[in-house]
Computed example of a mutant assay.
Amino acid sequence: MNFKFGRELRLLTPGQFDNVFKQPFRVSSPLFTILAKSNNLPHPRLGLTVAKKRAKLAVQRNRIKRCARNSFRLHQHLLPAVDLVLMVKGDISNTENSELQKQLEKLWRKIVRQHTALQSVAR
């Protein structure tokens, strides 16, 4: 298995983000909300939004994004072919990395379950 996080696994353009914001399914935890929408690719893609309102300092925002990218990188093979936009809820600038990872792992499992449920309903 390849655990890289190359350009093909990222949402890069505003159009790609806008597509996810149109009729997504949503999963959330106390720290994050993830919007997801099926794509026509053989792999998932991730886009990150960490607002200054949620984490004031750039170093805090970068740490949160680094944790999210790493978690996605390690779990990408378990995820369905969806485009994901991860958004931060509340002030999480002082949250430990281990707690961020735990919350993200739960969200990846929720995405798999919800995507499977939506696919079975669509058939």
Rank of each mutant, 00 (worst) to 15 (best):
L100A: 09
V85G: 09
S98A: 10
K65R: 13
Q103P: 00
A51K: 12
M87P: 02
Q101R: 15
Q103K: 07
V27W: 09
R54C: 10
N62A: 11
L31W: 08
G47C: 01
L78A: 08
L78S: 11
W108P: 07
N62I: 07
V85E: 03
T33F: 06
S71C: 09
Q60T: 04
I111R: 01
F32S: 03
S29K: 04
G90H: 09
N94G: 01
P42M: 13
R69V: 02
A55V: 04
L104M: 10
V82F: 11
N62H: 10
N70G: 03
S98V: 11
K52E: 00
I111E: 13
A68Q: 02
A81N: 13
L100E: 08
F72L: 00
H75W: 04
K53T: 03
V59E: 05
V82R: 11
T33R: 05
F25T: 14
V59S: 13
V59A: 09
N70T: 10
L100C: 14
L31F: 13
L31Y: 15
L46Y: 15
P80G: 06
A55W: 06
R66K: 01
F21K: 08
P24V: 04
R63L: 03
F25D: 11
T33G: 10
L78M: 07
A58F: 03
I64N: 12
D91A: 14
K52A: 12
G90Y: 15
H43E: 00
P80E: 00
S28Q: 13
Q76Y: 10
D91M: 04
A68F: 11
V59K: 07
K53G: 03
N40S: 10
L100D: 09
L31C: 08
L48A: 01
K89I: 15
I92F: 07
F32N: 01
V27Y: 14
V50Y: 14
R54L: 00
I64L: 05
A51H: 09
L46P: 12
Q23C: 08
A51I: 05
A36N: 08
